[in-house]
Amino acid sequence: MQVEVTVNGQAKSADVEPRTLLVHFLRDELGLTGTNVGCDTSSCGACTVHIGGESVKSCTVLAVQARGEDITTIEGMASDGVLHPMQQAFMECHGLQCGYCTPGMVMAATSLLSENPSPTEADVREGLEGNLCRCTGYHNIVKAVLQASGGQS
């Protein structure tokens, strides 16, 4: 069936099976491959995107459920070649290594800050409980999110 959404400010549309997961709709139909798939149990958060500004795991949403929604993916974060402050903080704090969890981590972290603009270290760690990274040991990810919040790192 026809799915019409707004992705990163642009109207997009494709005809898909009802069972199509949002993450596959974004990746395979719209070619937005920045959003990754790291598991099949809603555990890892690699597929995190924003719907209406809130983080969601796009592997656990049907594309048809997202019809009419305003979706932001990692491709929509930087503007005119300038990194989003969260992306910049990840770079400056070495908060990524292989980069596979990174898009989901950035989307989860920006959603976290929109709900809690001045988190403590513990808030950041709890807030990222649904996003797994195998490379960084999280130390520098937490540092990056705190830096992006303007707090102590």
Binding site: R27, Q87, E92, H94
Partner: peptide
């Protein structure tokens, strides 16, 4: 020194196998 790999990874521009 900050990594030159990072901008592409941070913006989703990099291609992993399933992206190709």
């Amino acid at each position: 020194r900050l990594r030159k790999e990072d901008p592409k990874l941070l913006t989703g521009e990099n291609k992993f196998v399933d992206d190709i």
